[in-house]
Design a protein around this nucleic acid. Structure first.
Lengths: 209, 209
DNA sequence: ATAGAATCCCCCAATATGGGTGATAGTTTA
DNA sequence: TAAACTATCACCCATATTGGGGGATTCTAT
C-alpha cells in the first residue's frame, strides 16, 4: 500500500508544528510520514529503519544542531533529500545549510499548500526556496558595486586569490612583474591590509572578487 | 494613468515571443510594456527614455550577447531588475547571468502564468528561478562527495586557497609547519599537481573546497 | 596485517613577498 | 583646467615561502 508513496521524516522540536505537518502530509496520497522526531540524534538513529526519501528539518533543535544533522545525514546517505523549514532567514545559516547539503530552504511563514509544493519540487529534483532565501542566494553570486578598487586591480586580486604569484599574474595580464606588484601595493593600501591573505579575506568578505 | 504601473522592457529577438509577451503583460493592469527590442544595443540606447523597472531579457541575441547586455545595463543603472528568459539551461550561462546581475532566470518552457508570477516576484524583491535552475544554483554550494583528499587535507587546502602560508596554516590548525607541509605534499600527489595555484584551480573546479 | 591518515623532523635551492622610493603617460572628474 | 586616479615600469633589499628530497611515529580502519 505504501510502497509507492514517498517516505517522509519530520525533525521538528515544536510538538504542534510537528503534528500539524504530519496530518497535512499524510492527507496527500503520494506522501507518507514514516516517523517524526523532536531532535536530530534520534532522527539519525532511526534512519536505517525509516529509510526516508525526504527529511523536513527544523534548524533550531535541542542538542545537535540542524546544520550538523544535515552534514551527518548526507554523509550516511547522500541520497536523502533534506528540506529545511525554519524561522531563521539569517544568511549565515542559509548558506551553511545549503553547503551542508540541504536541497531546499523554506521559512515558517509558508502555508500548507506551499509546504506541499516544496515537497513535490524536492521529489522532482528541484530546489524550493522562499522568495527571500532565493534572493539571498542569487545575491551571493553578485559583486559589490561600490568596490574601492579599480577594474584592473580587481583582475590582479582575482589572480592573487587563485594562488598565483606576482610573475604568474604578470604573465596572465601581459604586464611586467613590477606592474603587478605595483597594483598589489595599491590594493593593499586601499583595503588597508598588508598581506595576501588579509587582502583575499577582505575581498571575499566584501564581495570585491 | 501609467504612473503606478511597473515599466517593463522586453529584449527578445524572436518576433512572435516578443509580441506575445507584450500582449500578456499589458493585459495585467499592474504592468506596462514601455518598449520592446530585438537586440541589446538598441535596448541600452533606449534606457534613458524607457526608464524601465524590469527588463525581460533573452540571452541569445544578434550582436551584443545577453550577458554583456546585463553587465552594461547594471553598470548604467544598478536599480533595474533583469529577468532572464531563455531556452538555455547551460550552467555556465546561468552563473554568468547571475554574476552579471540578473535577478531571476526562467527558461522558455514556462507558461504565461509562471512568467507573470516571476515578474511579480522580481518586483517584490525576490529571485524567481525555474526549478532546474534553482537546483543548479543550490548544487553550486555543495561539495563533491567523492573527494580524493581527506578531511584534514581539505582543511589545509581551504586555508591554502585563502592565501595562507604554511606557517599560518600550521598556526590555524594547531600543528607544526612541517605537518602542514606534509599534508600539502600529499594533496599535490593526490591531485597530480605540483604547485599551490594548480591545486587551488583543480580543487575549485572539482568542488573539493 | 596492510594501508591510509595525521603528526613531526631535517636539508636545500629557488622563488616569492612586502616595503621603500621613485618615474611617465593617460583618463576622469570636480 | 587642475587635481586625482589609473596603469604602466624600475631598482634595492631583507626576509619568508615554496617545493622537492629524504625520513619517522602513532593511530585507525579494513
Amino acid at each position: 500500500m505504501n510502497y509507492f508513496r514517498s517516505r517522509i521524516v519530520i525533525v521538528e522540536d515544536n510538538d504542534a508544528v510537528r503534528e500539524g505537518f504530519s496530518l497535512i502530509i499524510n492527507s496527500i496520497s503520494n506522501y507518507y510520514v514514516v516517523s517524526t522526531y523532536d531532535n536530530a540524534e534520534d532522527a539519525i538513529d532511526g534512519l536505517k529503519k525509516d529509510k526516508p526519501e525526504i527529511i523536513i528539518m527544523d534548524l533550531e533543535l535541542p542538542g545537535m544542531s540542524g546544520i550538523e544533522a544535515i552534514t551527518a545525514i548526507k554523509k550516511l546517505n547522500p541520497g536523502i533529500e533534506i528540506l529545511v523549514n525554519t524561522i531563521y532567514e539569517n544568511s549565515e545559516l542559509v548558506f551553511q545549510a545549503l553547503c551542508a547539503g540541504a536541497s531546499g530552504y523554506i521559512t515558517k511563514n509558508t502555508n500548507h499548500t506551499e509546504l506541499l509544493t516544496a515537497i513535490k519540487e524536492v521529489i522532482q529534483g528541484g530546489a524550493p526556496m522562499t522568495s527571500n532565501i532565493a534572493k539571498m542566494v542569487v545575491k551571493s553570486f553578485q559583486r559589490n558595486p561600490n568596490s574601492p578598487i579599480s577594474a584592473r586591480e580587481t583582475e590582479v586580486l582575482e589572480l592573487l586569490a587563485k594562488g598565483k604569484s606576482y610573475s604568474m599574474i604578470a604573465k596572465d595580464l601581459f604586464i611586467t612583474k613590477e606592474t603587478a606588484k605595483s597594483h598589489i601595493k595599491n590594493i593593499y593600501a586601499k583595503l588597508q591590509v598588508n598581506s595576501k591573505s588579509e587582502a583575499i579575506a577582505k575581498a571575499t568578505r566584501d564581495k570585491l572578487i
